[in-house]
């Protein structure tokens, strides 16, 4: 049923991939997020549609101001003619699967523009990203958006996955986290292209920046750019947008040139989703006692026979695109 709907939404009667009307985008993303069976169709469509889009990763500790900053940055890019989408990720509870997705709150005020904004729960995704982050980003690019901003969950140092899928990576910090500079040295700080010192209106900013400079000077590798912003007022946002615009498009930009590492992550994820789906569908046919090896083997065979994960050509197709 979904597939019919999707077919109609994504393709012209003649079979040509089209841009669906804006009001359907949200629904299509839900399908991309949850419906493995629809993925081949979606990816086929995306392959035809996607042009180069910049994936901008935004990470940093909870409350550092990521959402507020993204709200301003997105508007800045929108007004300079880009078509902007935001994927804002918050953690799903391991226990209940539920989530409170609160990033929209900070971006609401001002409204009335074309920016597409979607809140996502991780749904089992690791490293600060949602399971379906890349797929959704790709679909957004298929809609014709050329600036896609991804806000990670904000678990800070462990949000390393963002570096595999986006370029540039913005690490948002706030003054008054002196002790945390030490901790930040590892983890995502290594991968950040810009360190944004947000809340620069706070009095402890100079002090913080000095500590940051010190920490940086001790580093052997390439030192990231440090920029100050006050996201609540918008100060520094134009500079940040300018920096992003001037930056040469790196090897990780866009879908046509995902890094091999990111591509592998992406493919693994796709494969995992479909495999899982295959198990779910065949669970009735075979036993599910986890210690019954014979039953388990039968079940795996059933999955393979059912060809739910079959049609490897879909994956081949994808591979052409990402490598």
């Amino acid at each position: 049923m979904t597939t019919d709907w999707l077919q109609e939404a994504l393709f012209e009667p003649g079979g040509k991939a089209a841009v669906p009307p804006r009001r359907l985008w949200g629904r299509i993303l839900s399908i991309a997020e949850a419906d493995a069976a629809a993925l081949p169709r979606l990816l086929e469509w995306a392959q035809e549609r996607v042009r180069c889009a910049l994936l901008i990763g935004v990470t940093g500790a909870p409350g550092a101001g990521k959402s507020t900053l993204i709200g301003k940055l997105a508007r800045q890019m929108d007004s300079s003619g880009h078509r902007v989408g935001v994927l804002a990720i918050d953690p799903s509870s391991d226990r209940t699967g539920g989530a409170v997705l609160g990033d929209r709150l900070r971006m609401e005020a001002g409204g009335g523009d074309d920016i597409f904004f979607r809140s996502m729960a991780t749904r089992g995704g690791r490293g600060g990203l949602a399971r379906a982050t890349v797929i959704c980003a790709q679909v957004l690019a298929g809609f014709g958006l050329d600036r896609i901003i991804i806000e990670t969950t904000g678990t800070g140092q462990t949000d390393t996955a963002i570096a595999a899928v986006s370029d540039p990576v913005l690490l948002v910090t706030e003054p008054g986290q002196g002790d945390e500079i030490q901790a930040m040295k590892a983890g995502v700080m290594e991968r950040a292209d810009v360190i944004v010192v947000n809340k620069a209106d706070l009095p402890s900013t100079d002090h913080f920046c000095a500590a940051l400079d010190l920490a940086m000077s001790a580093r052997a590798s390439e030192v990231p750019q440090i920029l100050r912003t006050t996201s609540t007022s918008g100060e520094g946002i134009a500079e940040l947008a300018g920096w992003i615009a001037r930056r040469p498009v790196g090897p990780r930009s866009g879908f046509t040139s995902l890094s091999p590492e990111a591509a592998t992550d992406y493919l693994t994820e796709l494969f995992r989703v479909r495999l899982r789906d295959g198990f779910d569908r065949t669970s009735d046919d075979a036993g599910s006692d986890p210690f019954d090896i014979v039953a388990l083997t039968t079940r795996i065979d059933a999955v393979i026979d059912s060809r739910v994960i079959g049609r490897l050509t879909d994956l081949d197709l994808l591979e052409k695109e990402v490598t």
Binding site: S92, S93, T96, G98, A99, L101, R104, L105, A121
Partner: peptide, 10 residues
């Protein structure tokens, strides 16, 4: 959220 829902809090 405790009941397993995703709440888009606006």
């Amino acid at each position: 959220s405790d009941a397993g829902m995703e709440v888009v809090y606006v």
